[in-house]
Write a protein that binds this DNA or RNA. Structure first.
Lengths: 342, 342
DNA sequence: GTGAAAGCGCTAACAG
DNA sequence: CTGTTAGCGCTTTCAC
């Protein structure tokens, strides 16, 4: 018969060393000097802590302090090149500020996002960076009302007084479209997603304005948004490409649409790709690897990460809330083989 | 002057309703009937809980119960197709068992992995599924000693008495190599990583045995493992391909090596890919999308997820530890365009 | 059927 | 300089 060895607590340590838990706690938290505990005692405690490889119970600490020092970065899909890049940068900034950060993917699914928000809020995380899926307004308001620090990212929610960092989608779509026009393409189609999200509307509007301004005809394919059925989407793209043979260039509204589109193009005819101009909104590691390499309108990931964290850390520090920060950044066109002059 | 509205606690609720916290707690946890609380009281409490949209403080609950009902799935890179697929399946099983699961990437970095293990252990997660990077033995032993449920995945650590779920890498490499031989390739090179990990050794051994058995010459390129310097790796591949013109097929030891290799091949000559036989260990969403589509040796993701969770849930339930479960599963060859007969 | 009260492990105000 | 102690919000035993 044996007992499960219980993890030692501060109290256990205090008993062994014949001192109070207060002293141990102070030393543990590096407040020994500040609290004027003698060098010898500090050394004795630290040695013992190291010896038994003591790990404090952070659940208890969090309950006591009311802070977990954990933040959450909640995006549509953390494996997406754009989000993972920003995530990585954010992680570094968090560590420097003695915060930890957890990543998770909403898959643009409201229900899943609600669950994630509650999961983390109930576990008392200190703050959120969220790419809000459509329909999540209520949960965001809930966090706001409860004065949980939240910064929106990639999309804003117009009716909400929340901080956000986004890019100028309209301008990016204009530049991308204009680039294809400048490269000599005349029948440029826009492939987008049938989702009532402001950033998608802006991209479409940018495309439309540029095409019409050049005296061309907009041609738009709107795919239903359902990650589960990529095959059906690809079939729709194939049908669209086949029945609109006049198209000589494609502008994809997101990087995952591009990837699906490239596959569709390949399935129609492996040579077809070399006859089309292609550009994608959002960059991807994949684009540099494809043959030909694929042009993209890239978002300013460094600046986004810096700004997001600056806003969030500020909210974490100052409990009284200032006016929401609303940031609209500019992206840059990355010209690769797929959009060169034909 | 206003006060930050504190989240209501069980005590607040009890006061408002003029009952004890015990009763509220019982109702909250669905134990009303079991504890024979009157239907009316249950209804009254539930109504009020809903009305104020009460969210329990799970940090407090965890401190009290000693369980967070959170598990961690710690892999090399969660954006890797193989790991994200398994992760998704595991997530479903967790939810069904009323556990939550957190995902994170070790990047095969020991220091990072140590920090992650401690981060989560200090926060009292209930269990771990870990793809162990080389050099992490000590931390895993630490968890084992503290009787934290751990299951290793994708790789075992021979000197450790830990549960694990892996595949037969030797057999998979043999099948993959044999498939290239059967397709008529004669000079098959193996591209691998210079990492002292058992699964890499097994893959190499499987390749070597099959090649020698067919009377051919093994040709192996070992790249240094450093995710940071993909460009340098790619340059090494290019040099290797250029200075070994006799090579007519390539067997990549991991899916990320394949992706890097495909890029190298493209950079040498966009047409070169069509002259080479290619197969990759581990499948990837990318392979189905590439032109040509890339063959792969795929791991049995469903079975892996099921077995991992079966083992972990069992450990969570039965505190006395049984003998470690050591599972070696078989993968399957997915034949695509890149390895067809030339 | 319901409530009082102890206690999970930690921090920090206060006392000495 | 160090210790006593209250209490974070919750669960659960025991009492009535």
């Amino acid at each position: 018969m044996f007992m499960k060895k219980k993890r030692p607590s501060l109290k256990d340590i205090a008993e062994v060393l014949n001192i109070s838990t207060t002293t141990v706690s102070f030393v543990l938290n590096g407040k020994g000097a500040e609290k004027k505990i003698s060098k010898e005692l500090i050394a004795r405690v630290e040695t013992y802590l190291k010896e038994i490889n003591y790990k404090p119970n952070l659940v208890a600490r969090s309950l006591r302090t009311g802070s977990t020092r954990v933040l959450v970065f909640m995006v549509e899909d953390i494996s997406n090149h754009f989000f993972s890049k920003v995530g990585r940068l954010i992680e570094d900034i968090c560590y420097k500020n003695d915060y930890r950060v957890l990543f998770c993917s909403t898959e643009n699914n409201v229900k899943r996002t609600q669950e994630l928000i509650h999961l983390f809020h109930e576990r008392q995380v200190d703050g959120f960076i969220i790419v809000p899926p459509p329909g999540i307004e209520k949960e965001i308001s809930y966090l706001l009302e409860n004065e949980v620090p939240v910064v929106l990212f990639d999309r804003k929610i117009p009716e909400l007084e929340a901080d956000y960092v986004i890019i100028n989608n309209y301008e990016g779509a204009k530049q991308s479209t204009q680039h294809l026009i400048d490269s000599g393409y005349k029948n440029i189609a826009f492939i987008t997603i049938d989702l009532d999200q402001i950033q998608m509307h802006d991209r479409e509007a940018g495309y439309r304005a540029t095409i019409e301004n050049a005296g061309f005809e907009p041609q738009i394919l709107k795919l239903p948004y359902n990650t589960s059925n990529v095959v059906a989407s690809r079939e729709k793209m194939k049908d669209f490409f086949k029945s609109n043979k006049n198209i000589d260039a494609l502008f994809f509204a997101t990087n995952y649409l591009s990837q699906s589109g490239l596959k569709a193009i390949h399935q129609i005819d492996p040579q077809l790709i070399n006859k089309l101009g292609i550009i994608s909104f959002d960059d991807s590691g994949f684009f540099e690897m494809y043959s030909p390499t694929i042009s993209a309108f890239a978002q300013p990931v460094d600046e986004m990460a810096n700004q997001l964290m600056k806003i969030l850390l500020n909210k974490l520090k100052n409990k009284e809330k200032p006016k929401p920060v609303k940031l609209v950044l500019e992206g840059t066109l990355v010209e690769r083989e797929s959009s060169s002059k034909k």
